[in-house]
Design a protein around this nucleic acid. Structure first.
Lengths: 136, 136
DNA sequence: CTTTACGTTGACGTCAACGTCAAGAACGTG
DNA sequence: CACGTTCTTGACGTTGACGTCAACGTAAAG
């Protein structure tokens, strides 16, 4: 096991191996490496071995949520990169805000589709339950 | 053009060619044929030519919405086939209701992911706007 | 009656998102 | 220190969702 006990002063922040993050997020190490190949995450290297920090886990969570939502990984990258984009200058901030707008529109379209699908499904369920009731 | 005028009595219900449905839904004819290969739609044949009815257009709409939501086409098929499944007998109805339950759970998971993503994005947008205001 | 437009069936190509070996290197453990 | 476990880098395989091309039929238009 990885030492989870002993938390007195300020120890170095915890890190994870590739097997640990893969397990934790329910994916294979190949998937994690694939995301790295695409530049979605960039774990530290100690010698040749990958070392994952909290930041990497955060990004991995965002990636997998994007995947569950059906976004292609390239699009996922533009989204999460957005959160790290430089925004010190006004022009940069305005660019980021523009991107945010596009992403929001996209997400809201999806939400509309989703609500429509759910509404249909629920209507159908109701009719089925009525039929079932009629069958006594 | 396809004759859109002259609508006096009860003419035969309107039909469409593959080019028309493809155009209308913004996909290629190859895509439409692909969905037919997978058994997602089954247009009538007049000789060798495909003839699309309202039913086919309805299904195509469901397919494309499923696609926008990121569902694999095989899963889309199980969903739209559900709407046509036999439910005359109690056992059939109960099976259908079970399937509906699974689909609903899936959609609601997606909705949760979607709401989370939107909430994050909106929080980020707010912070960006504050930064912009500070830059006066 | 040839042209032009649209339709058809294969069949192979492609791209994304990984899976699946193979063949080592590094590391704790008996 | 040998051994099994976990890590590494290739590199090729696979599946889904089409794109693309060839080769051909058909039907209205000039």
């Amino acid at each position: 096991m990885t030492d989870a006990a002993a938390d007195p002063a300020d120890e170095p922040p915890r890190t994870w191996t590739i097997a640990e993050v893969a397990d934790e997020f329910g994916v294979t190490h190949r998937t994690v490496r694939h995301y790295e190949e695409l530049g979605l995450i960039a774990p530290e290297r100690r010698g040749t071995t990958r070392v994952y920090h909290r930041r990497d886990r955060t990004r991995l969570g965002l990636i997998l949520r994007g995947r569950r939502l059906g976004f292609p990984l390239e699009e996922v990258r533009t989204i999460i990169d957005l959160y790290d984009a430089p925004r010190g200058r006004r022009s940069q901030l305005e660019y980021v805000l523009g991107q945010i707008g596009s992403r929001r529109a996209d997400l809201e379209q999806r939400r509309a589709d989703l609500e429509a699908a759910l509404a249909e499904l629920e209507g159908f369920e109701r009719r089925c339950r009525e039929d079932l009731a009629r069958l006594g």
